[in-house]
């Protein structure tokens, strides 16, 4: 009996395992982000938003929706993927993964696929939740979905790397808290980059998050801070970079094998 070249049962097992874990804690995984997002709408959308202008003809409450979806897409993808691979390392059950006939590509597909699925689902829930507060138009639905999926994948891949690198739970929390959330707030989630005075406008363009949010927002309202092609290129580039790092991790066994 020869072994098949592709272990689809293995991918499916990992994917299902990860999804089952999320379903067990469904309430927590949905309720917290939904409440947080709703608070943003109450505070920024209604209270402050009425005083905000300069977003063109898009009401402020609607303007921040893509940024909010992106923010939770970033943090949830990172957290889901990093926790998914960190946990078996932490409990020791990783031995089974390492001794199984699954390739690195299949392991990543299972974990990252599940993490991305969960954060995309959450992104859609937040979008639905937002539509209860503000009128939302999606000008380019195809590109909206494309950015949603690509960004979820990119950050899940990044999260997978963090999960392998992390030695404790604090380190898993640290990257989303200390890097991604600040960059998102400074990256035009709640304002248009055009509104910034120089030199901050130029400085902001070094923040990669700007490009992701801008591209996603463009798919809603057709207005972008930076060229959409650039946004797409950056998202794909980020995916490629993470894949390269993961390939290196598996080749060297970094923090997986002694």
């Amino acid at each position: 009996m020869s072994a098949p070249m592709f272990n689809r049962h293995g991918i499916w097992a990992i994917y299902r395992f990860e999804m089952a874990r999320a379903l067990r804690t469904l309430l927590q995984s949905l309720v917290t982000p939904v409440i947080t997002t709703s608070l943003y709408f109450v505070v920024f959308g209604s209270a402050i938003g009425s005083r905000m202008t300069g977003m063109g003809n898009v009401p402020y409450g609607a303007f921040i929706v893509p940024g909010l979806v992106m923010l939770s897409l970033f943090t949830q993808s990172l957290f889901n993927a990093s926790f998914g691979i960190f946990f078996p390392k932490f409990t020791g059950t990783i031995y089974e993964m390492l001794s199984a006939p699954v390739s690195p590509f299949e392991i990543v597909t299972g974990y990252v696929g599940a993490a991305a699925t969960k954060s995309i689902a959450l992104g859609l829930v937040i979008l639905a939740c937002a539509s209860l507060f503000v009128p939302i138009h999606i000008l380019h639905p195809f590109w909206m979905v494309a950015f949603l999926v690509l960004v979820a994948l990119a950050f899940s891949l990044f999260g997978f790397i963090i999960g392998i690198w992390a030695k404790n739970f604090e380190q898993i929390q640290s990257i989303p808290m200390l890097v991604i959330t600040p960059l998102t707030f400074l990256g035009g989630a709640f304002y248009s980059v055009d509104m910034l005075p120089q030199p901050w406008r130029t400085v902001t363009l070094f923040n990669p998050i700007v490009y992701l949010i801008s591209g996603f927002r463009w798919s809603f309202y057709g207005k972008a801070d930076v060229p959409v092609g650039l946004s797409l290129l950056l998202t794909l580039g980020f995916c490629a970079l993470c894949l390269a790092v993961i390939a290196w991790i598996f080749r060297t066994g970094y923090r997986l094998k002694s």
Binding site: N7, H9, A100
Partner: peptide, 25 residues
């Protein structure tokens, strides 16, 4: 060492292993 997933059921964890090793259910 007895490394196990505390929250998984016996049946689920055994099925998981079978799948991971490339066998159909």
């Amino acid at each position: 060492e007895l490394h196990t997933d505390a929250f998984e059921t016996v049946l689920a964890t055994v099925r998981f292993s079978r799948g991971l090793f490339g066998r159909p259910p």
